[in-house]
Design a protein around this nucleic acid. Sequence first.
DNA 1: TATTAAACGAGACGGTACGTCGCGTCTTCTT
DNA 2: AAGAAGACGCGACGTACCGTCTCGTTTAATA
Lengths: 202, 202, 202, 202
Amino acid sequence: MKQSTTVPGRPRDPDLSGRILTAALEEYARTGWGSFTMQGVAKRAGVGKSALYLRWSTKEQLLVDSIEAVSLPLTADIDTGHLRSDLTETASGLFRYFLDPIGWASLRIAVDVAVEFAELDPFQERIVEALREAVTVIFTRAIDRGEIPSDRPLRPLVEVLFGAILMHALALPPAERAEAMTNVETHVAPLVDVVYRAATGD
Amino acid sequence: MKQSTTVPGRPRDPDLSGRILTAALEEYARTGWGSFTMQGVAKRAGVGKSALYLRWSTKEQLLVDSIEAVSLPLTADIDTGHLRSDLTETASGLFRYFLDPIGWASLRIAVDVAVEFAELDPFQERIVEALREAVTVIFTRAIDRGEIPSDRPLRPLVEVLFGAILMHALALPPAERAEAMTNVETHVAPLVDVVYRAATGD
Amino acid sequence: MKQSTTVPGRPRDPDLSGRILTAALEEYARTGWGSFTMQGVAKRAGVGKSALYLRWSTKEQLLVDSIEAVSLPLTADIDTGHLRSDLTETASGLFRYFLDPIGWASLRIAVDVAVEFAELDPFQERIVEALREAVTVIFTRAIDRGEIPSDRPLRPLVEVLFGAILMHALALPPAERAEAMTNVETHVAPLVDVVYRAATGD
Amino acid sequence: MKQSTTVPGRPRDPDLSGRILTAALEEYARTGWGSFTMQGVAKRAGVGKSALYLRWSTKEQLLVDSIEAVSLPLTADIDTGHLRSDLTETASGLFRYFLDPIGWASLRIAVDVAVEFAELDPFQERIVEALREAVTVIFTRAIDRGEIPSDRPLRPLVEVLFGAILMHALALPPAERAEAMTNVETHVAPLVDVVYRAATGD
DNA sequence: TATTAAACGAGACGGTACGTCGCGTCTTCTT
DNA sequence: AAGAAGACGCGACGTACCGTCTCGTTTAATA
């Protein structure tokens, strides 16, 4: 009793999508958006352009999908038992992510998407939402533990935490990015302090 | 004894730079980065491409300069006499700026610049620094008034404020941007609350 | 046992070359070399520039190929049974060819080619040789008929005939070209006389 | 009684025209018409573009004038006392002229001029006419000496002589041009033969 | 001697074409 | 039908010259 839902013709090569996504990230990492070309990705993946366009219709969508795979690991559950260390760990992960070219790319695309590609908002939903939820969980647990008042609105706290890290990365002169990578805690601590104080009321 | 420090040849038309910068912003506002072309800017400004390339060698540099003029007004001095209202006003201005396509463009360029164009860091220095300083002044006055402890490190507070607004704008679904423009205070208040609380210790 | 010598990829559109060559001649005829542009040819042919550059890498090569098609008809076999009338007919054809802008173009290109584009000498070989051979045949037949001595070196005679016509066309003031077109025989006769006399020894 | 037709203002530098004409020929000889640019000429002559455009309004006119200076020496009077040697000497001079890039340029320009620049026909008149006249003189003297019949029409003979040399140079493969320069007589003799036979009736 | 007006260098300017490159679509053959 | 290969129409890229135009400076004749 074969439940055959097969379509006629040659089936899609299941490897290809992965190879293309990897190639896309590599191309992007090489010299940035400026030299991120569909032909380049195809050539690096050892694939024809048709294989790309059968799956993604624009460069943006391809890059969004490439980046999603790298982003989602960020949402890994963090639970150290204390709010401050949870925040520190989350913030450190986020900061490291923004220091990495690929992570930075995801930000850049979010920025592009926000104005120009309303139709692409999967990015907003999938990535931003996933991150937001992961942090919300941390605060919820802090409420349960009585570390912060139960009526504290959480969403602003989440935005402030993310925003602080993002802004810090953004304001970081390019020359100092390398150094920051090895001193994540030092960069993150003052910002976590601010958020922690605001959350707990000192 | 004529102290003539003139360069030979016809001098550059002093009007042109302005016309080009304006045209660049208009082109950008029209359909975003994707359709921001040097030829388009030249045509809109009623100018040959040579006039553009004599002054700016890349699209990015041209757009950075275009945006600077629009960004600097943000640094206008704000002094209402109270920290909370100073913060609210600053945050509102910033939020409005990010809701506007031009303001958003500046962010996008900052993001591009941060990784790829180390040589462009005038943007970092000129704009980011100017903004940071403007907000630092606000906190300094609050210290003078005794609203916040004098040993409070200010830089994290500034980054947190900016970041919060930025992140809020970033997380805003495209569809809601129009609405937000008319309800700036509502969006800004919870974030200012967080920062204010962190600054003053409630 | 399929002897498949196919190249991969989409084959070149076999129509295009023809359409482009035609468009090139039309563009050239319109206002001459000065306004013979690749973009103009592409537009007239309803074709992208890529299609041109895939086939010809310089304007000269494109024009040479365009002209070859028009030139070769000149080599049509002429055999009236008498040397003088053979010469007259050949000379008339040549003269008409030089009076036409397209024919004139071929001369101009030959002149360009002769010094600058050694690598283009297909033109020399293909066109000049073809013409020379066609006239040589005429003299050979005249030898067979006993009209001219069998030891007469033919190559100078051919060059003299061609050169005479060419020089006559060249020396013709532009204003008189139109008139000449309707009186070809009158212009040609004295020159043929000279060649005929030199060939036969009166 | 000073017949002063001076205009006010700084008089034109009498050297400049010469320097420009020389520079123009050098530029032309360098890589041909394709890279013959007004700016290049100006730079080579150490002169501003204005000096060029004050004297010549188009590239063609400038090149025509440059060439005229080199061409006119051709018209030097030749009188050896015998038709055949007069013809040989004239033909040799002409052939050498056509083997030289500069001489060849004059031909190319004549070809351009003939169709497109009716207004430029000074070239036709000045150069072609001057040459024609110089050769006509040779034939006239031959008539005086009784070498050729007095009713012989001369103009076709002149055209045939010129044309033969021109055609021979044109048909010469680029690779053989260098060799020809050292064996002018060998190349010229058979063509002179033809013309001489036609003129004298053997 | 001082004035004056053209010549002159330099180079900015609005254009146009260059030859290249990438887009996204298409057409062919192969798997 | 999927897929590799690559032709195709399109249009922007950044460069090079065009011929015109403004500058400041130079140069002789004139006033």
